[in-house]
Amino acid sequence: MKGKPPPLFLARENYRTRRIIDAARLLPVLGVLLIFLPMLWSAPMTSTGMIYLFSVWIGLIAVTGVLARKLDRSAMQTENEDRADPALSGGVQARTGRESD
């Protein structure tokens, strides 16, 4: 926003952090897709449905746990220093409030 423009390329560590953030952003989308998938099944068994849904659930929890742990270690510290990633065009910051009024 102000000050020197963000660097075009990042150190390996920061690059990893960015991609983990991307993954954390994409995960709910994947979750929604998986949860809505049973709607396409034809006459599912209730037990099968249960096993599927709870597997998806546990999978989401596990992946979120891993990502959140990594983010807690790296991203929360560095996000204030170098936030705007040029490669991250779909991100929250880039997509939302940069209005020029």
Binding site: R25, G31, V92
Partner: peptide, 21 residues
């Protein structure tokens, strides 16, 4: 209504999983 009750808990799960947003 069978398995429909899980939707009530899957919704918050999605929100928590997407906490970064």
């Amino acid at each position: 209504s069978g398995l429909e009750y899980v939707t009530i808990y899957l919704g918050p799960t999605i929100v928590m999983v997407g906490w970064w947003w």
